[in-house]
Every structure is written in C-alpha cells, then in structure tokens.
C-alpha cells in the first residue's frame, strides 16, 4: 500500500496535526507498511457479515430526565489554559 506525503498531509489536516517534512516522510512509510499488512483482511469474504461495533450485545441504556447538580463554574474552568470571566478564551473565531 503506497502512502504519499500528500496523503499524509490531508490526514494530518483532518486530525489537526502539524508534521515536519521528516515526520511526514516517516509516517508515509510506516503507515504504508501498516496499511499493506492490513490488506490481508481482503482475503476474507465478508459478504453478508454484520459488522460488530460493540463487544457485548446490549441495548437501551438510559437515564431518567432528572437534573444532577453541575460541577460548578470554578471546577469547570479550573484547567482552562486561558479564560475570560466565565468563558473559556480562545483565539478569535472567524465565521
């Protein structure tokens, strides 16, 4: 499986990762090798097989609509790298 630097760049952008050229080349090679290995799944005929997304068959886990006390403003903001009043502060968002 060939993985190009351009492929790596596209994925890195989606994942919000900034990679150096060296890292891009390294990842292209390593991801290519891993994806090459993964190709072996194609040997298996999986027509009509239902995909499994949960390890244990369960359904309908609910909670009732009852208000729980919040953790409180100070606890919510305690780990914020930057805050402004009661808000988490981030660089300006342009819409």
């Amino acid at each position: 499986m060939e993985m190009t630097v351009t492929d790596v760049e596209y994925v890195a952008r989606l994942a919000r990762l900034e990679l150096s050229l060296k890292e891009k080349e390294l990842f292209a090679g390593q991801m290519g090798a891993i994806l090459g290995y993964v190709e072996k799944l194609k040997e298996l005929n999986t027509d009509g097989i239902v995909p499994t997304s949960h390890a244990v068959p369960m359904e309908n886990s609910f909670r009732e609509d009852i208000v729980f006390s919040p953790i409180g403003l100070e606890k919510a903001l305690a780990n914020a790298p930057d805050r402004a009043g009661s808000f988490f502060a981030v660089p300006k968002v342009i819409e």
């Binding site: 994925v11 989606l14 994942a15 990762l17 990679l19 890292e23 990842f27 390593q30 991801m31 994806l35």
Partner: peptide, 10 residues
C-alpha cells in the same frame, strides 16, 4: 499517538 491518530483518521 500521532501515528495512531493518523492511521485511524485515514
């Protein structure tokens, strides 16, 4: 971690 995020995103 980056490698796995990249692989999974892909």
């Amino acid at each position: 971690v980056k490698r796995r995020i990249m692989l999974g995103t892909y």
